[in-house]
């Protein structure tokens, strides 16, 4: 089965190690950032319980949520894009795609086998990242209830309070929602990868497009374009940390993400199944 082969190749490649190392480094940097902020605010007498704006609500869960949000916006899409480039363009460039195509396996199976492995890995990576952020938060800061105030995360316009256990359940939901959101940059990278034989070009182009879409969706001059950009819908999972979850709104964003992912995949698959391999 092509999935088993792709999985073995992924495990044997350096990509998982690289991704995990980068995400762990990112978490440590976040921790150092919060610590240094607390030091500056408290005149050098900070412990983690006294960090950030308000000692009453910062804890390991807040840290994990901040880390998850920034990791999701800045890092995880890059690793998703990397998979598209490595799985399709890399195989095309190195000639190993030909090795697969001269076996009795359909292009459909190959394409979706690669996609399944890439998506599975992205989902697992997201889970590992959230788990690592929570554990790091637990050991460095300690857990408590989750209190959120309007601010950087913009998850709610009004202060929110979630008991610890509820907050942990919301983290699990946020992991699933974020994984769905990462399907869009992954699908985009698959589409781009069908145009090039170079993994580096494919990853570079996918990352560049992601960044452009992200910037456009975060600048209100381009308000009319926002609904058409997956980056606008991608961070909607933040609403899961509200006391009352607006499910309909979340469903709207999920549908938009699914639609855009399916569009990219349809374009990618169309090109992949029809193209020649010179």
């Amino acid at each position: 089965m092509s999935e088993r082969l792709e999985l073995l190749r992924l495990v044997r490649s350096r990509r998982p190690l690289l991704a995990l190392a980068a995400l762990l480094l990112f978490l440590v940097l976040m921790l150092v950032g919060f610590w240094s902020y607390a030091q500056a605010r408290s005149g050098g007498a900070a412990t983690f319980e006294y960090t950030y704006e308000n000692k009453s609500y910062f804890n390991g869960l807040t840290f994990a949520l901040y880390a998850f949000f920034f990791g999701f916006v800045l890092l995880l899409p890059l690793f998703a894009a990397l998979e598209g480039g490595a799985q399709l363009a890399g195989d095309t460039g190195s000639g190993t795609l030909t090795l697969l195509l001269v076996r009795p396996v359909s292009k459909t199976r190959l394409f979706f086998g690669k996609l399944a492995v890439a998506f599975g890995w992205t989902t697992l990576l997201t889970a590992l990242f959230v788990a690592a952020a929570l554990l790091l938060g637990l050991f460095a800061v300690g857990w408590g209830d989750l209190r959120l105030y309007p601010g950087v995360l913009q998850s709610a316009p009004r202060p929110q309070f979630l008991p610890r256990d509820v907050a942990l359940q919301r983290f699990a939901l946020a992991w699933l929602a974020a994984s769905l959101a990462l399907l869009a940059p992954l699908s985009l990278s698959f589409w781009i990868a069908t145009f090039t034989r170079s993994a580096v070009n494919a990853v570079g182009a996918a990352v560049a497009l992601y960044l452009v879409a992200h910037v456009i969706s975060e600048v209100h001059f381009f308000e009319a374009l926002r609904p058409w950009l997956f980056t606008w819908h991608a961070t909607a999972w933040r609403a899961l940390f509200r006391e009352e979850i607006a499910w309909r709104e979340l469903a709207h964003h999920a549908a938009a993400l699914l639609g855009q992912s399916a569009l990219f995949l349809a374009l990618a698959f169309r090109r992949f199944r029809r193209r020649e391999e010179p």
């Binding site: 089965m1 092509s2 088993r4 082969l5 073995l8 090795l99 697969l100 076996r103 009795p104 396996v105």
Partner: peptide, 11 residues
Amino acid sequence: ETVRHLARLGG
């Protein structure tokens, strides 16, 4: 591994 996995590709 290469020979085994590629041989299995046809099911």
